[in-house]
C-alpha cells in the first residue's frame, strides 16, 4: 500500500466511525479536536487503526501522535517494519 492509499484508508475509516467529513481530515489538523476525542473515545480510534492496519499502538505512542500527518507517518513506519 502506498502512502496515498494509506491516507485514503485512514481518512475513510475515521470519517465513518467518528461521523466527520473527510475534508476536515487534513495532515495538519489536530486529531483530538477534529474527531472530538476524549480519553474514552481515544481508545476507539486506536482500536480502529490497529484493526485496519494490523499494528499495535502503545499509550506512549498515541500520546505523541497529535496530527493526522503524524498518524499517517506512524502507520507507514509500523506497517513497513
Amino acid at each position: 500500500m502506498d502512502k496515498n492509499e494509506l491516507i485514503k484508508k485512514v481518512n475513510s475509516a475515521l470519517a465513518e466511525e467518528f461521523e466527520v467529513e473527510e475534508s476536515d481530515i487534513t495532515p495538519e489538523a489536530n486529531i483530538k479536536q477534529t474527531l472530538s476525542l476524549d480519553s474514552l473515545s481515544l481508545v476507539d480510534m486506536v482500536a480502529l487503526i490497529e484493526e485496519n492496519f494490523g499494528i499495535k499502538i502503545t499509550g506512549q505512542e498515541v500520546a505523541q501522535i497529535l496530527t493526522f500527518g503524524a498518524l499517517y507517518d506512524f502507520i507507514e513506519t509500523k506497517t513497513k517494519g
Partner: peptide
C-alpha cells in the same frame, strides 16, 4: 481488544 493508558476496550 486494545488498551490505551488506563482505558481498556
Amino acid at each position: 481488544i486494545t488498551r490505551v493508558l488506563n482505558v481498556g476496550l
